[in-house]
């Protein structure tokens, strides 16, 4: 089956949200290019995720691989897909650009010798191959990229597209792989849930973020309350994370997450370049800062010059009064 394959990622037994976005983009690409688009899901119990992926794509292959039970999955998944890709010859493999997708893409690229275009913010088709939009140099430049040869791997950033199921669901085929994977296993000894770690800040429509100006763990209550009033989630700068006020899962920026919400509201955040790269593509940026000359004032849509401990609760109150 030549064409485009979407590698569906399993999360919590079902399909990862990122894969629904990748599948939506891939389907559009297939329509433009006149190429087949298939999904592939590898896991100990791939069926549920495969069924979900089939809501987006005409054809999905579910590969059951017991080895992913109790072992880190990415390498095993990559090895299975590499074997199938060698046989069936897809031209392009698409994955999410999150931790799981990157690990899988890295192993696949090394095994197949295929190049990677990473962190796509959009996809197109030109001259018989896909084009990949990227935002580089901290958002200073948008580039359009292509493969030089016929084949390649693309990783897609969260929020590059809104997930949209196909008009009619596709069919799921089951496949079982031959032989044992060769690369070494990594055992999962334990899985631990941590409060605050499940912060899906990349998926949120509204992010209210706190920085050093929030002053401490207690100060984040003000951030949390405003986030709740807006139906959003809490983000943070590295300064706040390094100080131990909030979990790393909330960090936005160069070494944290990249978010693209409808509204990004910054409380006590200066807007350093390493933070800016993680949030500048937000549709609307509002900042509350005591310092009118903070860098964030240069790229926010609205800046309130004032003390966040006065302004943020006032906004929360006004929102509550409004929704009554």
């Amino acid at each position: 089956m030549p064409g485009i394959w979407v590698v569906g990622e399993i999360a919590d037994g079902g399909l990862a949200r990122i894969s629904t976005e990748v599948a939506t983009l891939a389907r559009g690409l297939g329509e433009t290019a006149g190429h087949d688009v298939s999904g592939i899901v590898v896991g100990a119990q791939p069926k549920k995720a495969a069924d979900e992926l089939a809501r987006f794509l005409p054809r999905v292959v579910a590969v059951s691989e017991p080895a992913t039970d109790g072992n880190a999955a990415a390498t095993i998944v990559a090895e299975r897909i590499a074997a199938l890709a060698r046989n069936s010859g897809p031209d392009y493999l698409l994955l999410g650009a999150g931790p799981e997708g990157r690990d899988t893409a890295g192993v696949l690229s090394a095994m197949l010798g295929w190049p990677v275009l990473a962190n796509a913010t959009g996809l197109g088709w030109r001259d018989d191959g896909p084009t990949v939009e990227m935002s580089v140099f901290g958002g200073k430049l948008n580039t359009t990229n292509a493969f030089t040869g016929g084949r390649g791997i693309i990783t897609v950033r969260p929020n590059a597209a809104a997930a949209e199921p196909a008009a009619s669901p596709g069919k799921v085929e089951e496949a079982s792989p031959n032989g044992e994977p060769q690369l070494p296993r990594v055992t999962v000894v334990d899985s631990v849930a941590e409060p605050g770690a499940a912060a899906p800040i990349e998926e949120a429509r509204v992010v209210v973020a706190g920085g050093r100006g929030v002053g401490g763990e207690d100060g984040f209550k003000v951030v949390q309350e405003l986030a709740e009033a807006l139906g959003g989630v809490v983000g943070a700068t590295r300064a706040a994370v390094d100080a131990g006020w909030i979990n790393y899962a909330h960090q936005i920026g160069q070494t944290g997450k990249i978010v693209k919400p409808q509204l990004y509201l910054a409380l006590g955040i200066s807007g350093a370049i390493q933070h800016k790269v993680g949030m500048q593509t937000a549709e609307t940026i509002v900042a509350v800062n005591r310092d009118p000359d903070a860098p964030i004032a240069e790229f926010a849509d609205l800046v309130v010059v004032g003390d966040l401990f006065e302004v943020a609760p006032a906004i929360t109150a006004a929102l509550r009064a409004r929704s009554g």
Binding site: W114, P115, V116, L117, R126, T131, S135, G139, K140, L141, N142, T143, T144, N145, A146, F147, T148, G149, G152, I285, P292, A297, E298, F299, A300, D301, L302, V303, V304, V305, G306, D307, E310, V311, P313, A314, I315, A317, A318
Partner: peptide, 27 residues
């Protein structure tokens, strides 16, 4: 295996609106 075809500057954001009012008015 990869090449850059084009590079463009992202569209500039609109001018910033600055609010300097007491907290309740600003809110």
């Amino acid at each position: 295996g990869t090449k850059v075809l084009e590079a463009t500057s992202p569209p500039a954001r609109a001018a910033t609106e600055v609010v300097r009012e007491p907290a309740d008015v600003a809110a």
